[in-house]
């Protein structure tokens, strides 16, 4: 601590000529700033920075649960864990399941969010905040509780969803018991729970779309869809990018839904990358779990970068 402030003080003194008439402020200021920063910085170093680095280290060793008390007595194995992951049929299955969840779930969630936001922003003038509140509410509830409830809603015989489908003459599938329908069921629930966040951000973004442009286009004979397509969408691009990135980051890590509702089944159709990593951790394969978690991180980073690029190029 003292070395940090001393260093800051020295630097401050050197800069003094440029700061007029307040000879002692800089010195005091630097010290006070570090005093204020210190509690956060200490917790952050111990519980975030150190584990991030330790995880990377662990992933190139053969650490297992029994090595818990002697973390430095483990052997270095290079990229063996990563190589193992890329040939682990079960992990690849989990990666494909996660890709399915993301590729279908993210566009579905974004479409619902954008539709709700546009309807609330332009379509109506009354009860706007009540609708907004209603759509946002599922976001703040526990995924575990929601998953427990949806497990019942999705029951084949006495579930609410199949009952409603029955009213219009559709025989609903055995959602969570059929490997073809288990993932669609989880995606449906995720979209239901999460579209509210996107809707709120889209509503904020829509404030930036000038209404005069819409009016001018309407005078020129553009219909509502054309105006949405050629005015709203291009102007909303940064917001859409932001929401798709954050939604995708969340969906790439989905865990609670299969943990509670399907336990990864049936026939491993809903094992996600996070769930598989958690299981490896549970088996005591700490090094392998750490390498899997880094692979998830790499996927998150790559997908984010790609998405930024794709949206920039299209424009």
């Amino acid at each position: 601590m003292s070395t940090l402030t001393d260093g800051a003080d020295t630097a401050r003194r050197e800069q003094l000529p440029s700061r007029k008439a307040r000879p002692r402020t800089g010195l005091r200021e630097g010290r006070a700033a570090w005093v204020l920063a210190l509690p956060f910085v200490l917790l952050f170093l111990v519980f975030t920075v150190w584990p991030v680095l330790q995880s990377l280290f662990m992933s190139v060793t053969d650490t297992r649960a029994q090595d818990l008390r002697t973390p430095l007595a483990v052997d270095f194995v290079g990229l063996e864990n990563y190589a193992r992951a890329l040939t682990d049929e079960n992990f690849l299955r989990a990666a494909r399941n996660t890709a399915y969840f993301v590729v279908v779930g993210v566009p579905l969630t974004l479409t619902l969010a954008l539709a709700a936001a546009v309807a609330l922003d332009r379509g109506i003038t009354r009860f706007r905040s009540a609708f907004r509140l209603g759509f946002y509410t599922p976001v703040v509830t526990s995924i575990v509780a929601v998953a427990v409830v949806w497990q019942f809603l999705l029951q084949r015989e006495f579930g609410l969803i199949n009952t409603v489908l029955g009213w219009v003459g559709i025989t609903g599938p055995n959602w969570l018991g059929d490997p073809d329908w288990s993932m669609p069921a989880l995606i449906m629930m995720a979209a239901w729970r999460n579209f509210g966040t996107g809707m709120i951000i889209f509503l904020a973004g829509l404030q930036a779309v000038p209404w005069a442009l819409h009016e001018a286009a309407a005078i020129d004979g553009a219909n509502a869809w054309q105006r949405f397509r050629h005015i709203t969408l291009p102007l909303m691009k940064p917001t859409i990018l932001f929401v798709s990135v954050t939604t995708m980051i969340g969906y790439l890590q989905f865990f609670e839904e299969p943990f509670v509702m399907t336990n990864g089944g049936p026939l491993d159709s809903t094992v996600s990358m996070s769930l598989y990593t958690y299981r490896q951790f549970g088996f005591g394969n700490y090094a392998y779990a750490a390498s899997l978690s880094y692979l998830i991180f790499v996927v998150v980073a790559l997908v984010t970068a790609l998405q930024f690029r794709a949206l920039r190029e299209k424009g």
Binding site: G7, V41, F44, S55
Partner: peptide, 27 residues
């Protein structure tokens, strides 16, 4: 406030916003 290391500290803290929780949980 102005202090030495401010930019680096801000960058470090913001940089970890993207890191998935699953990355830190084993260590």
């Amino acid at each position: 406030l102005e202090f030495r290391g401010k930019r680096a500290l801000f960058g470090l803290v913001m940089g970890t916003l993207l890191i998935p929780g699953v990355v830190t949980f084993v260590p």
